[in-house]
Amino acid sequence: MKCTRCRATAAVALPSHNAGFCPDCFQVFFSRQVQKAIKEKDLFQPEDKILIALSGGKDSLSLARELKLLGYDTAGLYIDLAIPDSSVKAGEHVGRFCRELGINLHVLDLQKEGLPIPEVQKKLRRPVCSVCGQIKRYYFNRFALDNGYSVLATGHNLDDEVARLFSNVMRWDTAYLGDQGPALPAQEGFVRKVKPLYRLSEFETANYSFLAGIDYCYAPCPYSRGASFTFYKSLLDELEHQQPGRKINFYEGFLNRARRAFARQEDLEGLKPEPCPVCGYPTTGEVCGVCRLREIMGAKG
């Protein structure tokens, strides 16, 4: 197979784009997809201060590299979950990566917040991943607002987004359908959230990280029961294999033609968040989930 742009030997075949690319042209392709997402969905402006949620995995590191190369004002936040082995390893990958690229890195230690994930896991009966996800979302948002960032960017890719959309549709979860998308506007207590990789598949990010020489972490978390939405993802992979381009069309079609209807319904019927009486960050309950958890864990301050 030859590169669609320069006729050299292709390194990456992309049936969904009816194209193949050599290493150099693939990186151009990748960068253009990110720029297209930023421009078409108005994700952020050159003057924005962007905080990138870094996990050490290929998606978040690829995102950080690309935004840095595009010249945006970025910094990273790594949340140390205090999970033996995996948190240390992931933290080392993130640290090395940021040093090499000259990206300013912040680290937030959940041990210091009184919420080390292994302790949380022991104390609660709920599946730890849903609590862990809630804690991470809370601190990423809060850190961004407390430190003057105007945008929080995450490494969610097309496969993550399509699997989530598919799962929301299967449950007709109108609240989630109303605000799923690559950009969530800032609201009282919420920083603007964006997903600049939403047009790129996990396969494309994997190729990008390899070609860019990104030394990412794939030490699995001991609590992980495999990737989220594993079953939906394999169904959708099969669909994409039979009908290349399905994933992006399904997702873009939702954004352009369906999302608004769900958002309108949520405006009418949904719960409006109020400031948490303890921390001041928005919640639809009384005291917010993270403050309740800190109380259960006996955390101070």
Partner: peptide, 8 residues
Amino acid sequence: VRKIASRG
């Protein structure tokens, strides 16, 4: 052969 499905 590097499988790409991410974990967690």
